[in-house]
Design a binder for these strands. Sequence first.
DNA 1: CACAATTCAGTTGTGCACAATTAAATGGGC
DNA 2: GCCCATTTAATTGTGCACAACTGAATTGTG
Lengths: 186, 186
Amino acid sequence: MGYWSYPGTMTASSSTPSAPSTASSPADTDWLRLDRQICFSLHAASRAFNGVYRVILKDLGLTYPQYLVMLVLWEYGDVPVKTLGEHLRLDSGTLSPLVKRLEAAGLVRRERSARDERSVQVRLTEEGAALRERALRVPRRIMGATGFDLAEITDLRERLDQLTTALDAAALTEAEREAAAEREAG
Amino acid sequence: MGYWSYPGTMTASSSTPSAPSTASSPADTDWLRLDRQICFSLHAASRAFNGVYRVILKDLGLTYPQYLVMLVLWEYGDVPVKTLGEHLRLDSGTLSPLVKRLEAAGLVRRERSARDERSVQVRLTEEGAALRERALRVPRRIMGATGFDLAEITDLRERLDQLTTALDAAALTEAEREAAAEREAG
DNA sequence: CACAATTCAGTTGTGCACAATTAAATGGGC
DNA sequence: GCCCATTTAATTGTGCACAACTGAATTGTG
């Protein structure tokens, strides 16, 4: 089946309940149906994952993004905010308040680097380091919640990483197309 | 490979840069490493997808969740807020302000149902219905951005839906476990 | 009919994501 | 030494996600 094959060939037999007043060709409708299904699936999966982590992380007192930050700290030790952002692809607008909440919870300290006053080092406290012990059982529960085995999880992860790489590259070219169109107009 | 096989067998050869001061067994570290990779991958993919939609939807004046709502309206016609929430798995706390923004943009009207005064019907305006024409080219650009062909996209979608179903079910059992533990303590 | 339970939208509060901006610190070129 | 681009956090503002709650409307049951 070709790259741009007509999606109607896959959904033509499906029922289209209560068509809207703005009727149009099945081809158009199916493209939008397909798009709705794809982007909704990823969106829903992301939120479902978030929901399970929310439940499981509740007794650690962490949110899902906070858990991500703690994972980086447990793995790499004390790092500057900048490095956290590189590992997690988050900017300071997200990380600054998040890390402050972790500090308020007593899990980390924030210290200006003496060597470079612009940099803020995020350091685990005793309590933050100790929390790692309780976090060790989280991955097993998560994997159990997915119903996937390790091979399936790993395969899915590789596809998602591949997708992310492609999307990041495409976002740049799309942004460039945008800029080109703007130059055209301006 | 067994369900709970030791992840160290996959990552034992990988370098563990600058181990933190709280050293522990490789097994523990690898579980947390794996978890970081999996949950981060999904999180990153979701945000990358969101980012591409953000760029592509910009000239339609829609955000990604707003686009999801419009897709439902274009496909099913006028629906109550409740139905929107069922299609998109979003609650009123998210949908109420979102739909109001769509109304402020002139794309929809919100009307109390005469039959059931509790229900709010969301209706496309002329402008909202017309926007569909410009949205038709979105799916093709998105699919191009992913670098995946239709079969791969469909396969990924099925896996994600399967994952979502499992996670939703697990969230309930985890919440039930939580409640049971609470009954034990209380 | 009366009353309790349910349904539905809305509001409030917390937290995340990200664009845009600000401000301080740094380092290179002159 | 002095300017200037760059780097780094922080701040502000907008929008989404969701829990908890409110309040009105409806429905079921006696």
